[in-house]
């Protein structure tokens, strides 16, 4: 299996490691957040533990640790293993991104 790293091109999958579903967004709660502790715990619990675990196309995090050390977001089919797209995480290439965007 090969994964097309947006920076390196196609590479053997053994260069990559997998984290999982990229859809859940990490909630941020400041120490003085007005939300109730239960709400806060529920939100973080949801992020850390619950998964849609879809059979089909899924956005997920891969790390090109055996290559350019970029975190990547792949769209992949969990039934066929087909990669539909692979893009860089927002902070991979931030030197460029920052320039263009802000």
């Amino acid at each position: 299996m090969r994964i097309a790293c947006p920076f390196c091109g196609e590479r053997d999958s053994s260069e990559f490691s997998y984290l999982g579903d990229a859809s859940p967004k990490r909630p941020n709660f400041a120490v003085d957040s007005p939300n109730s502790p239960a709400e806060i715990e529920d939100a973080v619990f949801d992020y850390v533990y619950l998964r849609a675990n879809v059979a089909g196309d899924m956005r997920e995090y891969w790390y090109h640790g055996g290559g350019c050390r970029s975190w990547l977001i792949a769209e992949r089919n969990t039934v066929t293993h087909e990669f539909k797209s692979v893009t860089a995480a927002p902070g991979a290439g931030a030197a460029l991104a920052g320039q263009a965007g802000e």
Partner: peptide, 20 residues
């Protein structure tokens, strides 16, 4: 060392891309 480096890169590239 390996897992922590990977974790720090995740924090840097995914969680907080706004940080320099």
């Amino acid at each position: 060392a390996g897992p922590v480096t990977q974790h720090l890169e995740f924090c840097r590239q995914v969680l907080w891309p706004e940080l320099d």
